[in-house]
Amino acid sequence: DYYKILGIPSGANEDEIKKAYRKMALKYHPDKNKEPNAEEKFKEIAEAYDVLSDPKKRGLYD
């Protein structure tokens, strides 16, 4: 669930989505986080943001 990945409610607005994305992206960026699964988690976060930040894609997802 993209909302769960970003840690936001399904009714989140654009600003909340952007803030959550930035926070999670910094936390899991492969250059900052050396955990083995950090890169995979970072890709999931980027995919979630891509879908939820685009009103058309978000509409299809919801």
Rank of each mutant, 00 (worst) to 15 (best):
P9D: 05
K56M: 05
D50E: 04
E44K: 08
E16K: 09
Y2D: 03
N13K: 03
E39K: 13
L60V: 11
V51N: 02
N37R: 10
D50P: 01
G7S: 07
G59A: 10
P36C: 15
A12V: 06
E35G: 12
D1W: 07
N33L: 11
K57M: 02
Y49H: 03
K27E: 15
E44V: 09
K57W: 02
D62K: 06
D15C: 06
A25C: 14
D62G: 08
A20D: 01
K56L: 05
Y3R: 00
P36E: 13
Y3C: 06
A12S: 07
S10E: 10
E39N: 15
K57V: 02
K32W: 01
P36V: 14
K32C: 02
K56C: 04
E35H: 04
D62H: 05
K56S: 07
L52W: 00
A48L: 00
N37D: 06
K23G: 15
I5F: 04
A48P: 02
A48G: 02
E40L: 15
D50K: 13
K43C: 11
A38P: 06
K4N: 08
A20S: 08
P9F: 10
Y21S: 02
S10C: 06
A25H: 04
D62A: 05
K4M: 10
E40Y: 15
H29Y: 07
K4D: 01
L6I: 03
Y61P: 14
K4V: 07
L52G: 01
E39S: 11
L26K: 11
R22W: 13
S10M: 13
A20F: 00
Y61S: 15
I5C: 10
P55H: 05
E47A: 05
A12C: 07
E44T: 05
Y49I: 03
G7A: 06
K32G: 06
P55G: 09
A25N: 11
Y49L: 05
K27C: 13
I45C: 08
I17C: 01
A12F: 00
H29D: 02
K57G: 06
L6R: 00
K56E: 12
A12M: 01
E14I: 13
P36S: 09
K27R: 10
L60S: 12
Y61N: 15
L52I: 06
K18C: 09
I5G: 02
K41F: 08
Y49R: 08
Y28R: 06
R22M: 14
K41W: 06
M24E: 13
K4T: 09
L26N: 01
P36G: 11
D15A: 05
E44L: 09
I17E: 00
R22A: 15
R22P: 03
D1Y: 01
A25T: 13
A38E: 09
A25Q: 15
A46T: 13
R22L: 15
